[in-house]
Write a protein that binds this DNA or RNA. Sequence first.
DNA 1: CTCGCCACCTGGGGGC
DNA 2: TGCCCCCAGGTGGCGA
Length: 269
Amino acid sequence: MPELPEVEVTRRGLAPQLAGRVISAVEVREPRLRWPVPQAVRKLAGRTVRAVLRRGKYLLVDCGDGHLILHLGMSGSLRMLAPGTPAQKHDHFDLVLGDRVLRLRDPRRFGAVLWTKDAVHAHPLLANLGIEPLSRALDPARLYALTRKHRAPIKQFLMDGRRIVGVGNIYASESLFRAGIDPRTPANRLSLARCARLAKAIKDILRAAIRAGGSSLRDYVGANGEHGEAQSRHRVYEREGQLCRSCGAKIRRLVQGQRSSYYCPRCQK
DNA sequence: CTCGCCACCTGGGGGC
DNA sequence: TGCCCCCAGGTGGCGA
């Protein structure tokens, strides 16, 4: 599920349900996530949640004297439930806030639940993150400058969180299609004009996905857990062999950095 | 520094 | 039905 749009919509769904509320209990059923869930997380009861923030794909729960850091990995999801809702397989972590429970489910356990008392942006996992794609920091000149030193294919550059955060495997392919750029193009061979096109494409694609995920993801966070509608909007992702909706050519798949990339050989040069 | 690759983990789907 | 292989929305860490 989780690329930037889903994490952001999750954040928007959670924030009003968590902010201002007191943590009454914590339950860790399975501490073996990407990193062991630290003992401090089990001792959060009594703290008041001030805000829920996002940095890249990390969710940051501001508890006043520290932050709970959540990451959904490849398969994680968060839901608000009524207390006493039976935990199912892969429901590893609960944050209980009186009459509501925030529950983390993550079959593959690539996600994380961490705690830091220090300035959260100085945390080792956050300190070296790249720019937020929906902020003004991502503009044509900045993208052009960032790409200059990188000979790696632009698809892999986009997915490198040390340059730009939040663009995952789906939206890297979708953004490159929208910008008309071949995913194999070396990053440092993009002109300023193409960087401008790409920066705008990334913002447009992510914003549209947030809007599309909005309604379904509100349910997702609140109760059900069904997939959003973003899937039906994909132009190239997981469409190998199907026809390009713009030109009719067959969409192709290739492997870059052990991840699938999808592109239209006619629309993307 | 950048890069290429492996690792972590579970589950679903297809071929035989 | 079972087995085996491939694939999956992330990303830290390794050696070159």
